[in-house]
Amino acid sequence: MSAARKRVRALRLNNRPVEVLAADNTLLLDTLRETLGQTGTKRGCDGGECGACTVLIDGTPRLACLTRTQECAGHHVETIEGLAENGRMSRLQRAFHERLGAQCGYCTPGMVMAAEGLLRHTPHPDEAEIRAALGGNICRCTGYVKIIEAVQDAAGTGAEAAP
C-alpha cells in the first residue's frame, strides 16, 4: 500500500474520538484490527458474504470488509468492544452467553452487532425479523437456533425466561 495516508477526520469509535491515519484504499476492517488493535471484529470470507466483520456505523449494521476507512470520516463506528459497560457484558452479550449462542465463537461478534443494530430500532422483534436481520451472518457451527433464542432472550420475546 503506497498511497499517502491521511487523517480520518472526526471519526468516533465506540463513543470516543479516535485519531487514525488511513490511505484512500484502506479498509475499515484493516484499520480496526491492524492499526487500532481492535481484533474483536473478525475477518471471515473477506468478501461481503459472511457477516463476521459486521460493525455498526451510525447505528446501522455494515460490513467492515467492504467499507473504506475514509468513508467513516464524520461517523460513529461501533464494534463488539464497545458493548460492555464498566467491564460487564451488555444484556445482549449475556443472552448469547447464557443461551449458548456461541460455539466456536468466530461469527459471534458479527452476530451480536447485527442483532444490536436490530434491537436499537426494533426492541421487541418477532422471530421473522430476527432471522431477516441476521440473514447475512453465517455460523459454520450452524448454531442458528441458539443464536435466535439468545436474541429473543435479550429482547424479552423468548418462549421462556432465562434460567
Binding site: P61, R62, L63, A132
Partner: peptide, 9 residues
C-alpha cells in the same frame, strides 16, 4: 438484494 448490511450500503 443481499442482506441488511448490503442494502444499507
Amino acid at each position: 438484494v443481499g442482506a441488511p448490511a448490503h442494502r444499507a450500503a
